[in-house]
Design a binder for these strands. Structure first.
Length: 434
RNA sequence: AGAGGAGUGGCAGAGUGGUCGAAUGCGGCGGUCUUGAAAACCGUUGUACCGCGAGGUACCGGGGGUUCGAAUCCCUCCUCCUCUGCCA
């Protein structure tokens, strides 16, 4: 009954019904101890929805019949009888409107419950509360030694005059730096390098819009919960993208893919805009957190049975990039408590910054299974002609500023900053010097 | 941005208040014929939800309204086309 009940669920009630115990157990990995209550609420509300729909449908059926009857009577010229029937039909209409209102109420409630249930974690996801419980699945055996007099990148960028935060402050505000000279050139080089690598791996390149509409925000799950994270152009009700995932994944909103065209692989470079309200502090100095930054994003749409193969492939891809850049890194499997709302399994890549003595997150690779696809109505048609939800995946490959920070800090020498070899064909110089 | 036109099933395209989920053509699928193919002919062919089923409901760009009844009338928004203007 689309007029009242066109909902964008995330998990589907039928799915929950069929897997209640499993879902309950898995969702508890996120620390949602009372999730079972919520699921029960959803199921009983879903029952109520069904029975209400039945009574609505039958009322509408009566009403339709009555209307047809009036039509017949009018044709036969039986005006008085028609008038009488009209009164009855009007009653039916009022009744169906009433039930319809009730129905929308139930739908609303159901939707808001469903919106608040995050994706079901994959079985390999460790239970846990915070980032401390993330599982380190790989780490380079040795961390680089801290050289004598090594400087953090916020000092280096001033020394070499390649990034200017003060200028950004003047022109825009905090978190909007200017990249200059070799810094600007290096950013552009990395973008090209990352895009070329993705193209070699079979990703189709796209240049995506940077402003998206509300539907797209809902499609990938930034709305309704995280609107505070996005810049909102209210005059036109458009949102500045926080990641290329939003426009690229939404290319496939309301799409039915032929099974043999899978997987769909896209890559795009975009600036990303994040308000980062309330998340500033001493540990986010310099390039560590920005309102605008560049990122190359890879996105895959995959068959449900092959999505974890695809996830592994993406993880490999990202790992290769970091290796080629020669940066010390580790790979984390996020625990339930740290896992994003819409993700079933996420691997984070962190690069070690010797000068800051900390790990910097430079990529996040996730499988969303059907969670986004359900909102997107993204399905495939199999050989049996049935339409089924697809799996969506994405990953940063890579986020630029922190990679830049890591290169600056790890590759500093007394006579300049060494450019990783793979980037030299793009930069045209092999060292950043004074 | 202004003026005008238009949005109907996979596509094309009829339908301007009542048995219209929607003619017709093309395409798709199945069949007849054929050694095979084409042609011709016959049949079939949207989606979602509810129901064990029979069946029911909803959907003609989106939303709202008028009416007993809307693809059809009204309001509003969106998109596309043409002309004019502007602009990288």
């Amino acid at each position: 009954m689309p007029c009242f009940f066109n909902s964008n669920n995330m998990l589907q009630p039928a799915e929950i019904r069929a897997n209640k115990d499993l879902f309950t157990e898995r969702l508890k990995k996120r620390g949602l101890e009372d999730i079972e209550l919520t699921l029960n609420q959803i199921l009983s509300l879903d029952d109520e929805r069904k029975s209400t729909q039945q009574s609505l449908d039958s009322t509408l059926a009566e009403s339709n019949n009555a209307a047809k009857e009036i039509g017949m009577l009018m044709k036969q010229g039986k005006k008085e009888e028609a008038e009488q029937a009209k009164a009855k039909a009007a009653e039916l209409r009022d009744k169906s409107k009433e039930i319809g209102t009730k129905m929308s109420g139930i739908e609303e409630e159901l939707k808001s419950l469903l919106y608040n249930v995050p994706n079901v974690p994959h079985e390999s996801v460790p239970a846990g509360q915070s980032e401390d419980d993330n599982e380190v699945v790989f780490q380079v055996p040795e961390l680089p030694e801290i050289a004598e007099g090594a400087k953090p990148h916020w000092d280096l960028i001033k020394e070499y005059d390649i990034i200017d935060f003060d200028l950004g402050n003047k022109v825009s505000g905090a978190g909007f730096p200017f990249y200059k000279k070799q810094g600007a050139r290096l950013i552009r080089s990395m973008i090209n390098f990352f895009l070329d690598e993705a193209a070699d791996a079979g990703y189709i390149e796209v240049q995506a819009p940077l402003l998206v509409n509300e539907d797209s925000g809902y499609g990938t799950g930034q709305l309704p919960d995280k609107e505070g994270q996005m810049y909102h152009a209210t005059a036109d009700n458009l949102f500045l993208i926080p990641t290329a995932e939003v426009p690229i994944t939404n290319m496939y909103r309301d799409v039915i893919v032929d099974e043999n065209q899978l997987p769909l692989k896209n890559v795009g470079h975009t600036p990303c805009f994040r308000r980062e309200a309330g998340s500033w502090g001493a540990h986010v100095r310099g390039l560590n957190r920005l309102h605008q930054f560049d990122k190359v994003e890879i996105v895959q749409i995959q068959h449900p049975e092959k999505s974890y193969e695809a996830l592994d492939e993406m993880v490999k891809h990202v790992e290769e990039l970091i290796k080629k850049l020669g940066l010390p890194y580790r790979i984390l499997r996020l625990c339930g408590g740290d896992l994003g709302f819409t993700s079933a399994l996420t691997y984070d890549f962190e690069v070690y910054s010797a000068a800051q003595k900390r790990w910097l997150e430079v990529s996040s690779v996730s499988n969303f299974e059907t969670y986004q696809a359900n909102r997107l109505k993204l399905r495939y048609k199999g050989s049996d002609k049935k339409k089924q939800l697809l799996h969506t995946l994405n990953g940063s490959a890579l986020a630029l500023p922190r990679i830049l920070a890591a290169i600056l800090e790890n590759n500093q020498t007394p006579d300049g900053i060494i450019i990783p070899e793979v980037l030299r064909p793009y930069t045209g110089f092999d060292k950043i010097t004074l």
